[in-house]
């Protein structure tokens, strides 16, 4: 809730201040890479064919881990998924209860619920971890909003160089971070614990 109000005020305020700021010189140009911090409420479908609104059903007030993948990937995805499976096992029954894992396909044209179910079985993915697909346009929108975009158009266009980051956040307290899925799984588990304010008073 806090975040959404923030976005609204940000957008309405921006228009009002543009003119006043126009006199400032070029070196003070703002970053074109600053996102509007709005996690889009796009429609997504999971491995069971169930539909969700991404933000309001899956992220709002929750601790989440979000990565991007596709089932046929022979690059970084298999390792990424197997590391995240270890993370899931370490978190145990918290996954699906107070920590939610989402893998969003980069190839929505290929990855239908059946392909997801096959992938889940093949990698030993447990319960409480949703594999999601959105439309092509929504997939790209979500990826950009989460910061997994490359400013080099050549790299951005090359599916083999797709993001290997995991976005970790706690929407309830608006604390967001990201780490590579290629680091040891126990260090990813620690990062999930770091976005939980219950752990602010201790080392985990």
């Amino acid at each position: 809730m806090i975040r959404r109000n923030f976005v609204t005020s940000l957008l309405s305020g921006a228009a009002a201040t543009v003119v006043a700021h126009a006199a400032s010189d070029k070196s003070l140009k703002n970053s074109p890479t600053v996102s509007d911090r709005n996690i889009p409420d796009i429609l997504v479908t999971n491995q069971e064919g169930k539909e969700f609104h991404f933000y309001s059903d899956l992220v709002k007030d929750k601790i989440v881990m979000i990565n991007f993948m596709y089932a046929q990937c022979e690059g970084i995805c298999p390792t990424m998924t197997s590391t995240l499976v270890k993370v899931q096992r370490a978190l145990g029954d918290r996954v699906g209860k107070d920590v939610f894992m989402y893998s969003v396909t980069l190839k929505p044209e290929q990855d239908d619920p059946k392909a997801f179910r096959h992938y889940i079985q093949m990698h030993g993915v447990g319960k409480g971890w949703n594999f999601l697909r959105a439309s092509r346009a929504d997939t790209d929108l979500l990826r950009r909003k989460l910061g997994f975009v490359d400013s080099d158009p050549k790299i951005e266009a090359d599916i083999n160089q797709h993001t290997g980051m995991v976005r970790i956040g706690n929407d309830a307290i608006n604390r967001w971070m990201a780490c590579p899925a290629s680091v040891p799984s126990d260090s990813i588990v620690r990062r999930v614990l770091w976005v939980d304010p219950a752990n602010d008073t201790r080392r985990v």
């Binding site: 700021h21 970053s31 996102s35 158009p153």
Partner: peptide, 20 residues
């Protein structure tokens, strides 16, 4: 198509302008 362009990337971002 897998290609995305800089213009669509830019469209997803809202620049922030601080108050004067």
């Amino acid at each position: 198509v897998l290609e995305t362009t800089a213009s669509t990337a830019a469209a997803a971002q809202t620049p922030l302008t601080s108050p004067a």
